[in-house]
Amino acid sequence: MLEIRNLHAGVEGKTILKGVNLTVQRGEVHAVMGPNGSGKSTLAQILAGREGYEITDGEVIYEGKSLLELDPEERAREGIFLAFQYPVEIPGVNSAYFLKAALNEIRKHKGQPDLDAVEFLALVKQKMKLLDLSEDFLKRPVNEGFSGGEKKRNEIFQMAVLEPKLAILDETDSGLDIDALKIVSNGVNKLRRPGHAQLVITHYQRLLNYIVPDFVHVLFDGRIVRSGERQLALELEERGYEWIIRQEPQLV
């Protein structure tokens, strides 16, 4: 479904990703872990199409297409979803209006008819239960005045409505207390589908207690230096990132 090959990228002349290779198949959940500054968020932003990054080498193939040539909105319509680390507050844009516009763009791309107001409302009400959200949420402007936890729940709620093929969760656990973390990860788990995939980006193993990955990758200094199964995350938790770095003499 997603194949990242030898991806080199940076910003303002500074190289951040130095040859990332990663393959994700349908139905899989991958976790990308790494210390601060390793390039985790850069990877997430580049996959979603954030402007301002310079791709110096490599390619990304998504469902047989060259992903990096697509605009952010085209990627979203093709089924890519980024749950933002810092969801943006957009005063004056009503949440329901925004989400309906987004959903209908994606439906149009799939050749499906627009949902009308009644159909849309029925759909979102069902999805709101999943994230334990109250209905007044929809009446509020996008993320405006939301607490950190509400913003993250809103991201997963949008994911539930838009039903992406590939969901990229960028530090979705940051700023969440344990209750909010459970609600959010429970929501993410319920959205798992055989044909869909999830890429979970996190600094801490804590999230992976709730969203259990099939594969774990360690990103360090712009490269994936270790890949393994879930056990790798637990070892990292116990021994810290230093443990891996010391084992890779070429990194020191």
């Binding site: 979603a48 199409g49 954030r50 402007e51 605009d71 952010p72 909105e73 990627r75 979203a76 319509r77 979803f81 980024l82 933002f84 969801p87 943006v88 957009i90 925004f98 989400l99 516009a101 987004a102 959903l103 763009e105 994606i106 791309h109 996008v142 949008q158 838009l162």
Partner: peptide, 10 residues
């Protein structure tokens, strides 16, 4: 970018 990342055209 936030809006575009949800499928809304520029």
């Amino acid at each position: 970018f936030y809006l575009r990342a949800r499928g809304i055209p520029l």
